[in-house]
């Protein structure tokens, strides 16, 4: 059982979990919507499937916010 923090809040992981799985379990339906920091380091998208989380990891989901009128 690993204890990690996600956006500052503690989460417990029962099984080995990858970043990709964490994104899904946190109800982020489109991974394209977020950027991920793991222990204050930016993580490339292609690594989401391969990075496994361990005890004490700090994950931050950063959301794109554009605002306004146009896309």
């Amino acid at each position: 059982m690993a204890k990690i923090t996600v956006n500052g809040k503690e989460q417990e992981l029962e099984n080995l979990t990858t970043l990709a799985q964490l994104i899904t379990s946190n109800n982020i339906t489109q991974p394209d919507m977020v950027s991920v920091q793991l222990n204050e380091e930016f993580v490339n998208r292609e690594n989401y499937e391969t990075i496994a989380l361990k005890d004490g990891d700090e994950v931050d989901f950063l959301y794109f916010m554009g605002g306004g009128q146009s896309a």
């Binding site: 950063l62 554009g66 306004g68 146009s70």
Partner: peptide, 14 residues
């Protein structure tokens, strides 16, 4: 923090 713009329509606008 955000290496590149998101794909169009991935993120809603105001």
């Amino acid at each position: 923090l955000f290496h590149a713009p998101p794909p169009p329509n991935a993120v809603p606008t105001c």
